[in-house]
């Protein structure tokens, strides 16, 4: 029960942070970190994935409402939410029995870094491809993806190192 409330709080916290603060940063002209995808990394793994997929879709959709981007955030967020499990299997070698005990903070930093950055880059690549909506300036898409991914990753790892309790 307590965990449920935590997840709901995390959802609204990330959503408000993204909409009110991070969407207006425009670092170096046009770089906005999309930190809200941290929700995908932090949501616990579960056998039943319907709720998780639906909540991720909803998170993306809420952000779309506020940033006038149609359904681009919803599409890209749902995409990494669906393929999260395959990457957990590849990088951490977990099987379904391990899912309830899986915790990102207990894994080694190198693995977590690869896992988080893969999902971030995929999300950003999809987002910027749809945001541009043409094959005209693919170089812009790639540059934007790279810059924003770096920014998002720095923020994510800074935030997790600040907010996790040291043991």
């Amino acid at each position: 029960m307590n965990k449920r409330i935590n997840q709901i709080l995390l959802f609204f916290f990330l959503f408000l942070l993204q909409v009110l603060l991070l969407n207006n940063i425009n670092f170096l002209g046009n770089i906005n970190p999309y930190l809200y995808i941290a929700f995908i990394f932090l949501f616990p793994l579960n056998e039943n994935r319907f709720t998780f997929l639906f909540i991720s879709f909803l998170l993306g959709l809420f952000i779309d409402f506020f940033s006038d981007s149609g359904g681009i955030h919803a599409f890209s967020t749902l995409f990494i939410a669906y393929f999260r499990l395959s990457f957990v299997r590849i990088y951490f070698r977990k099987n379904p029995a391990d899912y309830p005990f899986f915790n990102l903070h207990q894994e080694s930093f190198g693995k977590v870094f690869i896992y988080v950055s893969t999902l971030t880059v995929i999300h950003h690549l999809i987002y910027f491809s749809f945001a541009n909506f043409s094959f005209h300036n693919i170089s812009m898409v790639l540059i934007n993806t790279l810059n924003t991914s770096v920014f998002t990753l720095i923020l994510y790892f800074l935030a997790t190192s600040v907010f996790t309790k040291s043991e």
Binding site: F57, L61, D64, F66, S69, G70, G71, I72, F75, F133
Partner: peptide, 24 residues
């Protein structure tokens, strides 16, 4: 199914006369 909904919204948003659902 959900991706299809998202795609529909994306395409509608790009159309000047159809952008009704998702906007600020």
């Amino acid at each position: 199914f959900l991706e299809f909904i998202a795609l529909t919204l994306i395409f509608n948003n790009l159309n000047f006369h159809k952008s009704k659902f998702i906007n600020s």
